[in-house]
Design a protein around this nucleic acid. Structure first.
Length: 519
RNA sequence: GCGGAAAUAGCUCAGUCGGUAGAGCAUUAGCUUCCCAAGCUAAGGGUCGCGAGUUCGAAUCUCGUUUUCCGCUCCA
C-alpha cells in the first residue's frame, strides 16, 4: 500500500468512525474547515491535557492563561502582522509565478523612463553638439506620448492602491500590456489581497465601527499579559506562560486534511529569560519538547529536528519538530528564540514599560523569549496516522480476515474501555452495567451488547479502545471478568473489584510524564 | 491560485444505447448465545454534489459551479 493510499484510508476511517467530519457538510462543506466528531473531540481533549499537564504541572515555573481571541488592533501592528501581509498579488497562469501587482506596475513605469532615455540618447547621437536635450524632451511627440501615458497610469495606480481597488489594478496591468518576465505572456489571474488575518467589526457597523482581527497566533495574548502574570503571580525569571487556544489564518492554499486549516488550535508556551541566556533555554526546550513527542511511543525514528536557516523577522534561532507523516516529514511544532522583539515592540507601541526588574543582577531589562508552539490539529493528525494499523488475521486455510486497529497510546485513547456481556441474558447485561457504573466517573466507557463478541471487539479496535472487559457466565459466579488487550488480542482474567485500579493505572498519563522528566 | 482526477445510500461500488435508482457491507428491530467480523428474518435509509442547457425524457450528453484528492505554487 502506498503512503498516499494509506492517507486516503486514514481520512475515510476518521470520518466513518466519528473522529473528523468536513465542516457544514450538508451544504457541500467549507474548504479547509473540519469539525471534530464524538471520537475526535475525546482524542483532542486528551492530547491537550497531555500537553497542558506536561508544561504547567511538571514545570514549577510555568503557569497558564486563556486570553481572548479578539485583541486591540494595535497588537497586530506591534507584532508586524498588519504591515507585512497586505500585498495585492497576481499570478501568471503560464509561468505560474506570483507577483505583487504594484511592483509589476512600478517596473513598467521604470521601463517607460528607460524608453524616454533611449530616445534622448538616439537623438543626441544624431544631432551631435547642437543637441538641446531639454528642448527635445519637451517637444518630441513620441516622448510626449510616453510621458502622458506613464503619468496617467501612475495616477491610476496611486488611486487604486489608496482605494484598495483590486479590479482597477488588474485593468492597469492589462492597459499597460505588462507581460510576465518569465513566460512573456499576458495570461493573468485576478488581483487578490493576500492578508493572512481575518477581519471583523466591533460595535455598530453603521456608526463607523472599528475593524478588529481574529488572532493569527496565540502568542500575542501572552506577551500583552506578561506584566500582569509576572506581577500577580510573583514570577521570577526564568518563567513561562502557557496557553491553548484557537487562531485563524486566511491561507490561500489550505490543504492536506486537518494539517493546514484556516481555523486551528495552538498550544504555546512563551518562556521569559535573561538576555544572553536564550540559547541555553532554546536547547533545553528543544530537548524537552522532543521528549514529549517521543514519550507517546510511536518510534523515535519518526521524529526529527529541522533547524531553520532562514529566520523570521522576530527570531535569532528556530527549529521545527517534524514527524514522518504518510506525505513525508512535516512540521508539528516550532521552537523559536524570539529575542525581545515582541515585548520590545509592545513597549514601543503601547508606551508601557515591558521590563522586568531582576533582583539578582539589580537591573531592569526587556526579557528575551523562547517559544514552543505546537499545532493541536497537527498533533491529532500525527497521532491518528501513527496509530492507524491494518492487520492480517487470516488463519492457515481459513477465510481472509483483516482488522483495522487504532493503536493509540492508552492515555490519549478516546474510549478507555468497553464493557461487553458475552450474551444478552442470564444476568450478564446487568452485571456489565454495574461495571460501567463503577468506572464511568473516571473514564469514558462504552457498553455494547449487539452482535457477536468478535464483531464488538473489531468495532472497539476501529476506535482504538485499549481494553475490552468481557462479562461471561463465570463472572456471575465468581465476580471476575476478562480484559482483552487491543494490540495483542490476548485476554487475562481479573476480579471486578480490581478493575478501577487496573484500568486507571493502564490509561494514566503518569508513565508518559516519567519518560519526559527522567530522561 | 494554476493544471489533472473524482463526486450515485453511513461505507465500497454497479448502473448497458439517454427511458420509473441497484448490490454488498453498515444501521435499527427480532431470532440465534456462539470469546475474535461477514448465521436467519424484517425494516429504515438516495435532492444521483449543486445550477443551467440540449431532449418528449438526463445519474448518463454539454456548460458553469462547489467540494475533495494529486502535482505545482504558497506557507512570519
Amino acid at each position: 500500500m502506498t503512503q498516499e493510499e494509506l492517507f486516503k484510508k486514514l481520512i475515510a476511517h476518521s470520518k466513518e468512525y466519528g473522529f473528523i467530519f468536513p465542516s457544514s457538510e450538508i451544504y457541500d462543506g467549507l474548504s479547509a474547515v473540519y469539525d471534530y466528531g464524538q471520537m475526535g473531540v475525546e482524542l483532542k481533549n486528551n492530547i491537550k491535557k497531555y500537553w497542558w499537564d506536561a508544561m504547567v504541572k511538571l514545570n514549577a515555573n510555568i503557569v497558564g492563561i486563556d486570553a481572548a481571541i479578539f485583541m486591540h488592533p494595535k497588537t497586530w501592528e506591534a507584532s508586524g502582522h498588519v504591515g507585512a501581509f497586505n500585498d495585492p498579488l497576481i499570478d501568471n497562469k503560464d509561468s505560474k509565478k506570483r507577483y505583487r501587482a504594484d511592483v509589476l506596475i512600478e517596473d513598467w513605469l521604470a521601463k517607460q523612463d528607460e524608453k524616454i532615455d533611449k530616445e534622448v540618447d538616439k537623438a543626441a547621437k544624431r544631432f551631435g553638439e547642437s543637441f538641446d536635450e531639454e528642448l527635445f524632451r519637451q517637444t518630441n511627440p513620441r516622448i510626449a506620448e510616453i510621458v502622458e501615458k506613464r503619468a496617467a497610469m501612475h495616477k491610476r495606480m496611486v488611486a487604486a492602491l489608496t482605494d484598495n481597488d483590486l479590479d482597477e489594478l488588474k485593468k492597469i496591468i492589462e492597459d499597460c500590456e505588462i507581460v510576465c518576465p518569465i513566460s512573456g505572456t499576458r495570461n493573468w489571474t485576478e488581483v487578490r489581497q493576500f492578508n493572512l488575518m481575518f477581519e471583523t467589526k466591533v460595535g455598530s457597523v453603521a456608526e463607523g465601527a472599528n475593524t478588529i482581527y481574529l488572532r493569527p497566533e496565540t502568542a500575542q495574548g501572552i506577551f500583552v499579559n506578561f506584566l500582569n502574570v509576572q506581577k500577580t503571580g510573583r514570577m521570577k525569571i526564568p518563567f513561562g506562560i502557557a496557553q491553548i487556544g484557537k487562531a485563524f489564518r486566511n491561507e490561500i492554499v489550505a490543504r492536506q486534511f486537518i494539517f493546514r486549516m484556516r481555523e486551528f488550535e495552538q498550544m504555546e508556551m512563551q518562556f521569559f529569560v535573561r538576555p544572553g541566556e536564550e540559547m541555553e533555554w532554546y536547547e533545553f526546550w528543544k530537548n524537552f519538547r522532543m521528549r514529549w513527542h517521543r514519550a507517546l511511543g510511536f518510534g523515535d525514528q519518526h521524529y526529527r529536528f529541522h533547524d531553520h536557516d532562514k529566520l523570521a523577522h522576530y527570531a535569532n534561532a528556530a527549529a521545527d519538530v517534524e514527524y514522518e507523516f504518510p506525505f513525508g516529514f512535516k512540521e508539528v511544532e516550532g521552537i523559536h528564540s524570539r529575542t525581545d522583539f515582541d515585548l520590545g515592540n509592545h513597549q514601543k507601541f503601547s508606551g508601557r514599560k515591558m521590563q522586568y526588574y531582576d533582583p539578582e543582577t539589580n537591573e531592569s531589562y526587556v526579557p528575551y523569549v523562547v517559544e514552543t508552539s505546537i499545532g493541536v490539529d497537527r498533533t491529532v493528525l500525527q497521532v491518528l496516522s501513527a496509530s492507524y494499523t491494518e492487520e492480517d488475521l487470516t488463519k492457515e486455510g481459513g477465510p481472509k480476515d483483516e482488522r483495522v486497529v487504532m493503536k493509540f497510546p492508552p492515555a490519549v485513547a478516546p474510549v478507555k474501555a468497553a464493557v461487553l456481556p458475552l450474551v444478552k441474558k442470564d444476568g450478564l447485561p446487568e452485571l456489565a452495567r454495574e461495571i460501567v457504573d463503577s468506572l464511568k466517573f473516571d473514564h469514558v466507557i462504552q457498553y455494547d451488547e449487539k452482535d457477536s463478541i468478535g464483531k464488538r471487539y473489531r468495532r472497539q479496535d476501529a476506535i482504538g479502545t485499549p481494553f475490552c472487559i468481557t462479562v461471561d457466565h463465570q463472572s456471575v459466579e465468581d465476580r471476575t471478568v476478562t480484559i482483552r488487550h487491543r494490540d495483542s488480542m490476548e485476554q487475562e482474567r481479573v476480579a471486578i473489584a480490581e478493575l478501577p485500579g487496573v484500568i486507571g493505572e493502564a490509561v494514566s498519563m503518569r508513565k508518559l510524564f516519567e519518560k519526559i522528566t527522567n530522561a
